[in-house]
Computed example of a mutant assay.
Amino acid sequence: MTRVSIAALFCALFVGLLLPAQAQAATSARRSASVQVLALKKVEHHIMRVAASRKGTPYRYGGTGNGGFDCSGYTRWVFNRLGIHLPRTSASQVGSTTRTRHPRVGDLVFFSHGGHVYHVAIYAGHHSIWHAPYSGTRVRKERIWTGAVFYGHVKGMRKAVAKQARKITARRARAAAATA
Rank of each mutant, 00 (worst) to 15 (best):
V50R: 00
Y74E: 03
P58I: 10
Y61P: 05
G115P: 07
A124N: 01
G152S: 15
L19Y: 15
L13T: 11
K167A: 04
T98C: 04
H46I: 05
T98V: 12
A51D: 07
S135Q: 06
T27F: 10
K163A: 14
C11S: 11
P87R: 07
G115M: 01
R49P: 09
S128Y: 01
S32N: 11
M48E: 15
G95W: 13
H126E: 09
G152R: 08
K41C: 01
V120W: 02
V149Q: 12
W145F: 05
A170V: 13
H46R: 14
G147L: 03
A148Y: 08
A175Y: 09
A162Q: 13
H119Y: 11
A173M: 04
R143Q: 05
F79M: 12
G125C: 04
R3P: 09
W145R: 06
Y123M: 14
G16S: 05
H127A: 00
K42F: 09
H102D: 08
F69R: 02
G67V: 03
R60C: 04
L9M: 12
A148P: 04
G56H: 09
V117E: 00
G56R: 01
H113K: 15
G67A: 07
A91G: 06
C11I: 09
M157A: 08
A51V: 02
S128V: 06
A23G: 11
L19N: 12
V154K: 08
H153T: 14
V4H: 07
Y59C: 12
C71Q: 10
C71V: 02
G95A: 14
A26F: 04
C11A: 10
N66K: 08
H131N: 15
S34A: 10
G16E: 08
F69V: 01
S135Y: 08
A7V: 05
M1S: 08
T137G: 00
P133G: 03
A52L: 11
Q24T: 09
R171H: 15
F150C: 06
V154P: 09
Y74D: 02
S32I: 05
K41V: 00
D107T: 13
R172K: 12
P103N: 02
A91R: 13
H85S: 08
G68M: 12
K163I: 03
A175E: 05
P133N: 10
A29G: 05
I122Q: 11
R3E: 12
A148W: 03
R31H: 14
A173G: 01
R88T: 03
A12L: 15
R174Y: 11
R76F: 11
K167P: 00
T137P: 02
A162F: 00
V105G: 06
W130T: 11
L9S: 03
L18Y: 10
Y151M: 14
K55G: 07
V120M: 03
K159H: 12
I122R: 04
A91S: 10
Q36A: 15
R76D: 09
G56E: 02
H113G: 10
G114E: 02
A33I: 07
A170M: 13
S5P: 01
L18T: 10
L108A: 15
A132L: 04
G73H: 08
L86C: 04
V94E: 04
L82R: 10
L17V: 06
P103A: 03
P58Y: 12
G95I: 06
A51N: 01
S112K: 15
